[in-house]
Simulated assay, not measured.
Amino acid sequence: MGRPSRKDEILQAALACFSEHGVDATTIEMIRDRSGASIGSLYHHFGNRERIIGALYLAGIGQYAAMLDAGLEEGMGAEAVVRLFVTCYIDWVVAHPDWARFILHNRGRVEAGEVGEVLREANRQQGRRIAEMLAVHREAGAFRELPFELFHSVVIGPTQDFVRNWLAGRTRAQPGEYRELLAQIAWDSVRA
């Protein structure tokens, strides 16, 4: 694997600053100092602090989406797809807890900011890919009757709630301990 790009180094420095000081308390100067980048480089790559926040958010959800896409295979069974949604989410969060915390706490800010439309479009594209994969199983009768808008919440909701508690330090159990159980609960909740 090659050396991270300057842009990636700045984003990782920003994430470290946001994790240590909070998003609102972090200044562009703090990010500059942490990354070793010049102010000119920061502004060249991002333009302002809000765009750094947006870029970091998009990079995180993009990384998770790529991990999920890499696990999805043509002809995958309904149960395997549902389980993958849960296990991929847990695996990504465990590997990137600061990034996950950042994403969980900053969605509204990013949606309302300069990159909000980019985020909405990324979510629409990912949603379409998932919907196409699920449609085959839905048509085959593999899932119980649920409004499509509710399906994602039923599948990932319990896992997301547990992970939020773990990220906030409200549980000692590690998400990996319940990875397979949460995947089974998701499948049991939606199977026909």
Rank of each mutant, 00 (worst) to 15 (best):
G108Y: 00
Q126G: 07
A16Y: 04
R120E: 05
L181K: 15
A131E: 10
L84V: 09
H137K: 03
A173G: 11
A25Y: 07
Y43F: 05
E114Q: 11
R34K: 08
A55P: 07
A140Q: 02
A16C: 14
R101P: 03
E50C: 12
V81Q: 08
R49P: 13
F46R: 02
I61K: 07
R6T: 13
H96A: 08
E117A: 07
A100M: 06
R179F: 02
T171G: 10
A122G: 00
A186P: 08
P4N: 02
P4M: 03
R128M: 03
L181T: 10
G47E: 13
W187R: 05
G22Q: 06
G62T: 02
R120N: 02
L11E: 06
P175H: 04
M133T: 13
I28Y: 13
W99T: 08
E121Q: 13
F148C: 13
A142Q: 14
Q174W: 11
N106G: 04
T26S: 11
I61M: 13
S41H: 01
P175C: 12
L182N: 10
H21E: 05
I53Y: 03
E177A: 15
L119S: 00
S189F: 11
Y89S: 12
S35H: 01
D91E: 15
Q160E: 15
E9V: 08
W187S: 05
L150A: 13
L56M: 02
V110A: 00
N165F: 09
S189T: 06
M30D: 10
P158M: 10
Y89A: 10
P175Q: 09
Y178D: 11
L15G: 11
F162P: 00
D161P: 09
R128F: 09
L119T: 09
W166K: 03
I130A: 01
G176N: 09
L84S: 15
R124C: 12
Q63C: 15
H44T: 04
F46S: 03
A80T: 15
Q125D: 15
L56P: 00
C88E: 10
A14R: 00
F102C: 05
N123H: 09
G47F: 10
V155K: 02
I185D: 15
A14N: 11
E121F: 07
E177F: 12
R128P: 05
G116F: 01
G2P: 11
A37D: 09
L104P: 14
G62Y: 00
L56T: 00
